[in-house]
Structures are given as C-alpha cells and as structure tokens.
C-alpha cells in the first residue's frame, strides 16, 4: 500500500519489500488495480536481509573502485534509495522492533525516511534519530483504532496516538565515511546480529522510493 502511494505521488521508481508472500500477492493485485505496475518492483525479503544485500553490494563497489586508476575512481558509491517509507510494527510482542526497522531504514536511504511511531515514544525516537545523524519532523498526528488483533492484547479496542514522522539526513559524509572504515563496518555487523534474531520474523510492510 505504501509502495502504491509512493508511485501515485510521483516517485520515479519504487521497490516494495515484504517477507510474507500473501501480503505480496495482495500488493501485486492492488498494483495492477491502480495501474502503477510500471513503477514498482516487489521483492520477497525481510528488512534485515535487504539491508545486508544493499550493504554487501556497496562494499563490493568500493573495493572494486580501489583497484582502478585514480582517474576512474568514482567518489563513494551512492546508496540506491533516496527515500524509505515504512510502517514498522509497534504494540507487538517484541519491544523495540519499531526502532530496529527505523534503524535499517536510515541505513538504506540517501536522504529521507518516513515512518509511523506511537506518539508516546516521540521523544525517544527523536533522540535516537538525532544520534544517527537525522533531523526529525512530525508531519502528521494520527489516531489509530486498533482492533484486538493479537491474542495477548488485553483490551478489545484501544485507540492509540501515532505520529507520521520525517527523518532527513543531515550529513551524508558521516555515513559514507563510516562505511569506508573497516573497524566501523564491523561494529555495524555486530549490531546487525542483534537485530537479525528478532526482525526476520516480524517483518511488516515497507516500501521505498528511488
């Protein structure tokens, strides 16, 4: 759904990812219905693996460039995506899953991330995003009326306040520089490890512009 929105709003190309084949079937149907199949490619993959593949490719590109004559050496290769849009899981069993998704999104984008978070966590989200080198702006405040969707939910229906936030990368250099230092990229993979265990099974809809 997010991917279709991006396409309708004028993104040149959109890549939609989800780990759940049923969700992708529905997405495919909707994409045809909305006539935006020209613009969207879908991949069945979890967010963590997607970050892994995008990073592995970037590292390979950097290594290749090192071998070339300096005249042909490109500046650091750019990430594929300019904007990442996600609707991360919150209010689920796994605490902090929304922040893990948000972190992955920030790793994938050159410019901006749009995401949805509980208003009650706004301060925490802002602090984290600032540490990652992004500025934070609340674009809209929404009210979700969540049906009792999981067996462990205690109340039948509980309206929750949700922020639509926009993160904007303040400094591109920071990330690129980090990616270039082997020491730092090792740190990144240790973070990945922690994230991987939980994220793989809790993938939610997610899409991105290019």
């Amino acid at each position: 759904m997010l991917a279709i929105g991006c396409a309708i709003l004028g993104a040149s190309r959109v890549t939609g990812i989800d780990v759940d084949p049923d969700a992708l079937d529905v997405a495919k149907h909707n994409i045809m219905e909305c006539g935006v199949h020209d613009t969207i490619d879908l991949i069945q993959i979890d967010a963590q693996s997607f970050e892994d593949t995008i990073k592995a490719r970037l590292i390979k590109k950097e290594t290749d460039n090192e071998g070339l004559n300096s005249n042909f050496k490109k500046k650091h290769p750019k990430n594929m995506f300019d904007t990442v849009v996600l609707n991360p899981p919150f209010g689920t069993r796994i605490k902090g899953a929304d922040m893990q998704f948000l972190k992955i999104a920030t790793e994938l984008t050159n410019k901006a991330v749009y995401s949805l978070h509980k208003t009650s966590t706004r301060e925490f989200v802002t602090t984290k995003a600032t540490q990652w080198g992004f500025s934070v702006e609340v674009v809209a405040e929404l009210k979700y009326d969540l049906e009792k969707s999981m067996s462990f939910h205690k109340k039948v229906s509980k309206p929750i306040e949700v922020d639509l936030i926009r993160l904007t990368r303040i400094s591109m250099n920071k990330r690129i520089k980090n990616a270039n230092e082997p020491g730092v990229s090792r740190d990144l993979s240790s973070q990945k490890l922690q994230a991987k265990r939980v994220v793989v099974k809790t993938e939610k809809k997610r899409s991105m512009f290019k």
């Binding site: 780990v19 084949p21 495919k28 490619d41 879908l42 991949i43 069945q44 993959i45 693996s49 997607f50």
Partner: peptide, 9 residues
C-alpha cells in the same frame, strides 16, 4: 515467481 524474487532464507 510472477515477477517476484523470493530471497527469504
């Protein structure tokens, strides 16, 4: 399948 690569391990 149907244009969608399945990259799930």
């Amino acid at each position: 399948k149907q244009g969608i690569p399945n990259m799930v391990l």
